[in-house]
Amino acid sequence: MLSSRFPFPLSADIFQYSNNLRPLDTNVSIQVTHEYTEEVGLKRSLLKQHPERCFREEIHTRDAQWEVLNYVLHQLSQVYPEHFRLRQEGDNWIFENTLLGEEVHFRDLDNDSLSCAPLDFAGRQVQEDLILLTQYDDKLVLEAGQLCFPGNWSLYFDFGMPFMDIHTPVPGLIDDGLAAKIERFLMRVESGKPWTRLNWSLNAGRRLDTSAETFDEWGPYRYRVTEDNVGHLVHLRVEEQNLMRMPRSNSLLFTIHTYLMPLHEITQNQTWTNRLYRVLCTLSPKLVEYKGLSAYRDVVVEYLAKELRVNT
């Protein structure tokens, strides 16, 4: 049985933008949840329809990509042995995915033995988006990625950009100093010591693929939130981001698992409701704008307040 999982992101009644990374104690960076079949299916269809939007690579990252592939497949087979199996027969590796009823044969480091790039292949086995950064003397650069469920950004555009440039300063929110410190921290992340952080926002609509490319498809729902539909239309969107050093290539891998939960389910939990309510009430205008909540924050706050009154 696959588990349900929803990492609630708010640990205090006030939210500040910061480098909220903490050690990932379990070392497990891939989560397989009961939405696996649905979400992996969605990823694959997005990859098929919009390859240029969902996968980008510098060809010189292929060795690092093979390292990621090894990492992901080994992790799946070690953490979820009932669903995934990896075995070696001579020069061949055989990966069995029983959830999808697939079996793939490939040879290590042999690009021709896979039907797509190694990072792309790895990403097609997991719900996570995978972003690979190459470490240079003074910077980290996004040089390969499979991204199907972006939180309003574009892999097509950010591909090839240094970490610092991806995080364009936001006046009053993210200054140059913070991004530089985070980059310096990331450059010193050691293999064997992965890190994790939770990132959150609200989504109007149940949609994982909120790419900058399709904003005109999903953005309008922000303006259709009403008192009557808010509980079902608005979702708390949580990105669980894990990052780890690949010991051989010295590249940095980000895995991003995106979770959505409608507000009417959030409100089943009194603590969560209370916390989300307080955070939304005290969120600075800049953050409200940045997270794209301007159009419906008040409706959500009103709804949460009502739920809190009913339950007390």
Binding site: W153, T168, S201, P220, Y223, Y290
Partner: peptide, 24 residues
Amino acid sequence: IVLPEQLVFKSEEPQPSRTTPEGR
């Protein structure tokens, strides 16, 4: 991409100011 709604809704400050990806 800018939605027509954004311009109407935020008439007091016509800057959607999504200069970076959200929450990143």
